Amino acid sequence: MNLPKSINFANLPTKIEKLERLSQELGTQIYIKRDDQTGSEISGNKVRKLEFAVQEALDNECDYLITCGGIQSNHARATAAVAAKLGIGAYLVLRGKEDSEVEGNYFLDKMLGARIKLITAEEYKNSRMEIMEEIKSELSKEGHKAYILPEGASNGIGSLGYCKAMKEILDQEKELGIKFDAIVTAVGSGGTYAGLYYENHIKNTDATIYGVNVCDDDEYFKNVVLGLLKEISKYTGEEIYVNKEDINILDGYVGKGYALSEPQEIEFIHKLAKQEGVILDPVYTGKAMYGLVEEIKRGTFDKHKNILFIHTGGIFGWNNFARNLVGN
């Protein structure tokens, strides 16, 4: 399978480390792929998706990127950084309030020179695409040609970033002499999971791809992933046939909701940081790793020998509330 052309932004391949003390504690082999180290301003999983999506934008002679997300969106910040690197414009539609603290990703969005439109949660849920289309039209009047990226760059072209990441993992298995039979990632918009799943299916490996949803529910994301798999095939020319039951989403770890932290989640992230020297984020990887550990304790992973967790980044998403939950 040949992937379309992509631009190179990320520092790849990202390394794989064993979580020695956590593995010993749980009696299983747990490894972590450090996609949080893809870069600095562009750190995390979003840049892998942007490498394909932004190439498509450039191929279409676009000089502006429009996208959306929460006010602490990692994807929006990565988009702003990529646009700045290329010398083109970025316009971010963010779910947030005018009096929101200028910190974390929101601060970096401003630092990187992105134009920003804040909208309400209701507007975001019901009208974000229409709002981005309006901005595209306004930019056209200014003489610009804009390219709209969906939330998380989770569409067919963006998901190819994690088809490529799965190829990378398979190469690293050979180098390390390890076969991962379970690969686990946080699921917030579906593109990372869909890309991993597609390439894993095409390569017909023995690995099971698991997602831990950080918002919505398993039924919602199973439908999202099925749609993305069809979109991916339009770019690769190879369609795969998957039943909804084949999509493995470990539900039950959303907690209070998207980007809302509970004390036990923060306590877990803090414990892992002290135990392994790895800092997760409270929005995505913290919930996902917490879910993985709980499922290991329940026996869900008893059939697996080597588990690989994808650290998708997000360290800039630590807001004041979450930081205050961290103990000594």
Score class of each variant (00 low, 15 high):
N2M: 12
N2C: 03
P4T: 11
N8Q: 14
L12N: 07
T14Y: 10
T14N: 12
I16E: 03
R21K: 15
S23G: 11
Q24C: 04
G27M: 10
I30A: 05
Y31N: 09
R34D: 08
Q37G: 00
T38A: 11
G39Q: 03
E41H: 12
G44M: 05
G44S: 10
K46L: 03
V47G: 05
K49A: 10
L50Q: 05
E51V: 12
F52A: 05
V54K: 00
V54T: 13
Q55W: 10
A57C: 08
T67K: 10
G69V: 09
S73M: 04
H75E: 01
A76I: 01
R77D: 10
R77A: 06
T79N: 01
A80W: 03
V82E: 13
V82K: 06
V82M: 09
A83M: 12
A83K: 12
K85V: 01
K85A: 09
I88V: 13
G89N: 13
G89W: 02
L92V: 12
R95V: 00
R95P: 01
R95N: 13
R95D: 13
K97D: 15
S100T: 13
V102W: 07
V102I: 15
E103S: 15
N105K: 03
F107I: 00
M111Y: 13
G113P: 12
A114I: 04
I116D: 08
K117A: 09
L118D: 14
I119N: 06
A121T: 11
E122S: 10
E122H: 11
Y124L: 02
S127N: 15
I131V: 13
I131A: 02
M132G: 01
M132I: 07
E133L: 14
I135K: 07
E138L: 12
L139S: 02
S140C: 02
K145L: 09
N155D: 15
S159P: 04
K164S: 13
M166E: 06
M166V: 01
K167P: 00
L170G: 05
E173Q: 13
E173M: 01
K174G: 13
E175C: 02
F180C: 08
F180P: 08
I183Y: 02
V184D: 00
A186D: 05
A186G: 01
Y193N: 06
L196K: 05
Y197E: 06
Y197N: 02
Y198R: 01
N204K: 15
N204R: 13
D206G: 08
A207F: 12
V214L: 07
V214T: 07
D217L: 04
Y220Q: 00
Y220I: 04
L228D: 10
E231I: 02
Y241A: 01
V242D: 09
D246H: 01
I249G: 00
Y253L: 09
Y258M: 03
A259H: 04
L260W: 02
E265N: 08
H270S: 14
L272F: 07
K274D: 08
L280A: 07
L280W: 06
P282F: 10
P282A: 11
V283E: 07
T285E: 02
G286D: 05
K287A: 00
G291T: 06
L292H: 04
V293C: 13
G299M: 07
L308S: 04
F309A: 03
F309L: 03
H311K: 09
G313S: 09
F316W: 14
N319W: 04
N324S: 15
N324E: 15
